[in-house]
Design a protein around this nucleic acid. Structure first.
Lengths: 206, 206
DNA sequence: CCAACAAGTAACCGTTTAGTTACTTGTATT
DNA sequence: AATACAAGTAACTAAACGGTTACTTGTTGG
């Protein structure tokens, strides 16, 4: 019989579940497959997490918290103006490149019309980062670095959407544009171009 | 017994299948449910389309062709410079707003790493519109309307990704930004802002 | 009018899947 | 070392699901 270690088993289940749910969505994911990947008996999933849906919810929470860590780290650096904008875009690109599971799970939520997201407490998901970014752009306007007729809210939305779509649609876009959007090089090019696009819109000419 | 009408039955199956696949993805979609929605006997799905996967492929082709119609219509108008860019963005926003099934099916394809898309013949999906847009931007550079140091390929990619993400991520973004991204008004604001963002990047200042 | 075939039906089958039951075994505490 | 409970196992079940079989019925061309 296998060595007994409940913490290790739970962690293994969560890791396997994240991969399975991210790869196949809630319906496509197989509990038996998660058990096999985690190298534990299926019974333990039900013992530790209840059922498939409860396990999925736990995976979602885990996934969101990773993103929050990255954002909090960014805020701590206290950057301003163009260097902040560059850092935001760069950070999102890097995070999304390194966390395909996060991208997939967000997409799954959108396909379900955000049903799970709407169940969890507002303050868990309402990210202070958005407010921080908007305030930073506003102060960039005040000190004359950014144009003063731009809508900070819209700019932040555009930044996030532009970063995200490169990953959420990488397969269909790769096919459509006949380029490998999954490769490190292509993503780096996209990152630089996105920085150029957003900053050129923001910067006040003299 | 029901009136006999194979064309009507096939069309009903395709319509029901599109809704079912768009809502639940390939794995989540139920053949029995499609049959019920189409109000036909399940046997007919297998008679007309073969199996679940073949039906899904047919739905994919149908979905793409709607998009192609819109794009071909756009190309026919023979627009140039800024008015072309405005029209492209405007057309994508309107199409995506009116065709949520298209958005969902594309997202499912990405979640499945484009597995079905990659099986379809290349020339069916390789859209000439992309080449047309790139060429148009290049000629805008030649006649001095657009900056000459911009990368047309990257600009077209940015246009498409920026439009798409407003719809593919509308639920998570609505939650994150505390705004209703599904409403006509918000989408109109996003459309205008996106036009501003892209054109301000392209236009050559004097 | 009547074969012949296409359109449509109902009941069924083998497999897969989420979830359960009844059981065994390791280990920490006394 | 005996006890007690948590950790882990194997085999099972009921339902769901994709796909099939054997059949009936409407339509059409000679």
């Amino acid at each position: 019989m296998k060595e007994r270690n409940p913490d290790k088993s739970k962690a293994a289940i969560l890791r396997a579940a994240e991969a399975e749910f991210a790869g196949k969505g809630f319906f496509g994911a197989r509990v038996d497959e998660i058990a096999a990947k985690a190298d534990i008996n299926k019974r333990m999933i039900y013992a530790y997490f209840g059922d498939k849906e409860a396990l999925y919810n736990q995976v979602l929470l885990n996934t969101y918290s990773k993103m929050e860590d990255v954002e909090n780290n960014l805020i701590k650096q206290n950057l301003q103006g163009i260097s902040l904008i560059e850092k935001i875009i760069s950070t999102y690109f890097d995070f999304l490149y390194n966390n395909p599971d996060f991208v997939n799970i967000l997409m799954w939520e959108n396909l379900n019309k955000g049903s799970y997201l709407n169940k969890i407490e507002k303050d868990i998901i309402e990210r202070k980062s958005i407010k921080y970014f908007i305030t930073a752009i506003e102060s960039g306007k005040s000190c004359g670095v950014f144009k003063d007729d731009i809508d900070s809210f819209q700019v932040v939305l555009s930044m996030i959407t532009t970063c995200f779509a490169n990953f959420s649609n990488q397969y269909t876009l790769s096919r459509l544009f006949n380029t490998d959007l999954t490769s490190k090089e292509t993503i780096e090019t996209r990152k630089q171009h996105t920085i150029e696009l957003i900053t050129s819109y923001l910067i006040k000419e003299n």
